[in-house]
Nucleic acid binder design. Structure first.
Lengths: 204, 204
DNA sequence: ACAAAATTACACTGACCAGTGTAATATAAT
DNA sequence: ATTATATTACACTGGTCAGTGTAATTTTGT
């Protein structure tokens, strides 16, 4: 008679502790002892749940990705202004850097991705469909004649490039962003985007 | 009689070796022994030139920044098309990621900046004037009536955000970029930029 | 209440690494 | 050729850390 017991509680507290520790110290400088300490578990228990530090990090990352995915599903609404809907897309992206927890984990993730490109590719497969969401939105607006977007995929990629460059890179290179400044930049970039794709206004 | 001997050769080879080692392994995983090995110097000599690993990295970083600064000075030319001149700006930025050596060092630098925001701020002071160069270019085009740029500073920041998001982040998250794809994205983003600021085409 | 499953404390291995001290050796400027 | 200077080999310290083995203890499902 093998009766399995419910271990999700300890497991979650380990993930929470790992998340906090990684955020505070970065991947390399976080020791498994410290994670166990924060989680209120023994190091041995941590290893009973996760076979290695890398596996533990992947689990933390996976949980974060799942939460992030659950957050940004926006569909085309024929009745709302394009500008407002694009702002919604942008705001979803900016949630990452406004929330200190996610920002911290984003930073760690970037460092890990840099030293482990394979993991980067593997993890990023999940996010591809969020670009598809925007591309579909653009295609819908195009079909309605509200935008002129010959290549929705390219436009979507450009949009995410703008957002990433405006809201992720500065946080790395210059530190926290002023909220008002961020708002201004968001509006400016969306204005560029719409100026390019609003029908009847292209240069050629 | 204190006769100083010329030590710049050894010093340079140490910097070269450090640069290569940091690129290959990242900051944390590079040992001073390995740097000495690649440089063809003894560890003790490395420490005779640089008091610590951090100081050595700063020296490598400083040399890279100096080279980068020497590269991008573009001034307003009334006779060339705006599009071509903006492409020059973009190309200067893209030199970073097309050159494997600089790309490698850029990655390391990002990880170091993330774990050491103070160094990030300190180092970034030097780059501010390159943004000013673009802002001045925009102001000149504005004064000539070829563009309508109410806030050159904001527009310049937006331009660099676009470039960074399009050409730096993807390299981190997705690996090396296809050259053709990069060209297409560059053109698209410049088209957005010009659509926004070309006179007589704004929505409001 | 009982037994299996989970957790804990703790000691320990093996490895890596920044930085130092020293005495010997090589180098280059005069 | 001389001599101060730069470089080298090498051993060593002190510290950190991933991961393991084990025996004892606690928890929990029934």
């Amino acid at each position: 008679m093998t009766t399995k017991r419910n271990t999700t509680k300890k497991r979650e507290s380990i993930l929470d502790g790992a998340c906090q520790a990684f955020m505070e110290e970065g991947y390399d400088h976080t020791s498994m002892d410290r994670i166990a300490d924060i989680a209120g578990a023994s190091k041995r228990t941590v290893y009973n749940h996760f076979p290695s530090k890398e596996a533990l990090f992947k689990a933390v990352l996976g949980r974060m990705m799942a939460q992030a995915m659950a957050l940004k599903q926006i569909s085309y609404d024929p009745d709302r202004s394009l500008e407002a809907q694009l702002e919604n897309f942008a705001d979803a992206k900016m949630e990452f850097i406004k929330n200190p927890a996610w920002l911290g984990l984003l930073k760690v993730t970037i460092t890990v991705f840099i030293s482990n490109p394979g993991l980067a590719r593997e993890t990023m497969k999940f996010t591809e469909d969020s670009e598809d969401t925007l591309a579909a939105w653009l295609a819908a607006a195009h079909d309605q004649g509200r935008l002129n977007v010959p290549s929705p995929a390219l436009a979507a990629e450009a949009f995410w490039a703008m957002m990433g460059g405006a809201f992720i890179l500065p946080v790395i290179f210059r530190g926290p962003m002023d909220a008002g400044e961020a708002r201004e930049m968001k509006k400016e970039l969306i204005a560029m985007f719409l100026a390019r794709y609003t029908p009847g206004k292209q240069a050629r």
